Amino acid sequence: MSFSPPAPVSIDGSAFRIGIVAARYNPELVDALVQQVGGYLRAAGVAAEAIDVWRVPGSNEIPVAVQGMLRQGGWDAVVALGVIIRGGTIHYEVIAYSSADALHAVSLEAGVPVINGIVVAENEAQARERCLGAVDRGSEFAWAALEMAALRRTRFPVSRP
């Protein structure tokens, strides 16, 4: 894991419509990510009414909801948010890998950036640090969404329904 992300690029988000699909599992942590993403987007000029949040049970359900959101059309980017913490079995690995693969597939199929904001942690302390502590993953996910939305608009525009 890198603690040296690229510096955010200043982007006026006032013309963008950004979707957020967030798991309800690990609610304290995921809710913090939703707040961080929404706060960053609004600070960048994205109107509150141009941000739509859909909630799903867990990280495994995120990709199908993202797909449904993208099929509605009109989105510049979608941020997928969840928290998966290692347990006593490899179940967390299965969910982490399968949701990441599915998010990539949905994004490529739709031609719309989907930011994988599913935090995968070895333990609760790591997850808390990334969602509530010094590592502000939510803001990183938001600026990645804005940067990709801007890139999409300028480099590979897609007609809107």
Rank of each mutant, 00 (worst) to 15 (best):
I62L: 12
L41Q: 05
V83W: 10
G74H: 13
S98R: 11
W54L: 12
R55A: 03
H104K: 12
D31K: 11
V64T: 11
A100M: 07
I95K: 09
W54V: 06
L70S: 10
G88L: 05
D52Y: 06
L29A: 13
R42K: 15
A44F: 01
V78K: 13
A44M: 06
V34E: 13
Y92V: 00
L70V: 04
S99P: 00
A44L: 03
G87T: 02
A48S: 14
G39V: 03
L103N: 11
V83N: 09
L70R: 10
E93H: 10
V46K: 14
W54H: 10
V53E: 01
V56A: 13
V37Q: 14
G39E: 06
I84N: 06
A47S: 10
A32F: 03
A44I: 02
I90L: 14
G87E: 00
A47V: 00
P63Q: 05
G73V: 08
S98G: 02
D101V: 04
Y40R: 15
Y92E: 03
Q67D: 15
Q67K: 12
L103Q: 09
R55M: 00
Q67I: 00
V64F: 15
E49T: 09
I90N: 13
S98M: 04
G38T: 07
A100V: 00
V53D: 01
I90V: 08
A47G: 08
Q35H: 10
V30E: 06
V79K: 15
E49F: 01
I95Q: 03
G74R: 13
V53M: 02
T89P: 09
G73N: 08
L33R: 12
P63V: 00
Q36Y: 01
D76M: 02
W75Y: 15
V64W: 13
Y97E: 04
Y92Q: 06
G38H: 05
L29G: 09
V79Q: 12
A43P: 00
R42S: 11
A47P: 07
G38E: 01
D76L: 01
A50R: 14
L103K: 12
M69K: 13
H104V: 03
L29C: 14
I95C: 09
P57M: 12
I84E: 07
I51C: 14
